[in-house]
Amino acid sequence: MKIKSTQDERIAKMLFASVYHHYVAKVVKKGRTKEELHRVIQWLTGFDDVTLQHQIDEKVTFEIFFDQANLNSNATLITGVICGYRVEEIKNQLTRKVRYLDKIVDELAKGKKIEKIMRRSE
Score class of each variant (00 low, 15 high):
residue 86 R to W: 04
residue 116 K to L: 04
residue 61 T to G: 10
residue 35 E to T: 12
residue 79 T to S: 14
residue 84 G to N: 08
residue 80 G to N: 08
residue 18 S to Q: 08
residue 59 K to L: 09
residue 115 E to P: 03
residue 100 Y to I: 05
residue 63 E to S: 15
residue 49 D to R: 09
residue 113 K to V: 01
residue 74 N to I: 07
residue 24 V to Y: 03
residue 57 D to Y: 09
residue 98 V to Y: 07
residue 48 D to Q: 06
residue 118 M to E: 05
residue 66 F to Q: 01
residue 53 Q to T: 15
residue 18 S to M: 07
residue 45 T to Q: 03
residue 23 Y to R: 00
residue 24 V to R: 03
residue 120 R to L: 14
residue 44 L to A: 04
residue 7 Q to I: 15
residue 110 K to V: 02
residue 90 I to Y: 00
residue 90 I to F: 08
residue 61 T to K: 04
residue 72 N to E: 04
residue 81 V to S: 13
residue 85 Y to L: 08
residue 12 A to C: 09
residue 16 F to C: 01
residue 106 D to N: 12
residue 45 T to H: 01
residue 13 K to Y: 09
residue 33 T to C: 02
residue 94 L to I: 09
residue 72 N to A: 11
residue 4 K to D: 13
residue 111 G to F: 00
residue 82 I to C: 08
residue 9 E to R: 13
residue 72 N to K: 08
residue 53 Q to F: 00
residue 11 I to Q: 07
residue 36 E to T: 02
residue 8 D to R: 14
residue 108 L to H: 01
residue 31 G to C: 06
residue 67 D to V: 10
residue 6 T to D: 10
residue 87 V to D: 00
residue 13 K to N: 14
residue 85 Y to K: 10
residue 90 I to G: 03
residue 21 H to P: 00
residue 22 H to R: 10
residue 38 H to M: 15
residue 25 A to E: 13
residue 67 D to Q: 13
residue 18 S to V: 05
residue 88 E to L: 10
residue 16 F to P: 04
residue 15 L to P: 07
residue 58 E to T: 12
residue 98 V to T: 06
residue 104 I to Q: 01
residue 31 G to Q: 07
residue 37 L to N: 03
residue 2 K to L: 12
residue 71 L to S: 06
residue 12 A to F: 08
residue 99 R to K: 13
residue 34 K to A: 09
residue 107 E to G: 06
residue 115 E to I: 02
residue 111 G to C: 01
residue 13 K to Q: 13
residue 78 I to D: 00
residue 100 Y to K: 08
residue 102 D to N: 13
residue 8 D to W: 11
residue 62 F to D: 03
residue 51 T to M: 10
residue 32 R to Y: 03
residue 24 V to W: 05
residue 72 N to L: 08
residue 9 E to A: 15
residue 116 K to W: 00
residue 3 I to K: 10
residue 60 V to I: 12
residue 16 F to L: 06
residue 39 R to T: 11
residue 38 H to W: 11
residue 87 V to A: 01
residue 47 F to T: 07
residue 39 R to F: 02
residue 91 K to S: 15
residue 117 I to D: 00
residue 15 L to D: 10
residue 46 G to C: 09
residue 11 I to S: 11
residue 2 K to H: 11
residue 15 L to S: 13
residue 21 H to A: 08
residue 90 I to R: 05
residue 95 T to L: 10
residue 85 Y to C: 09
residue 101 L to K: 02
residue 3 I to V: 15
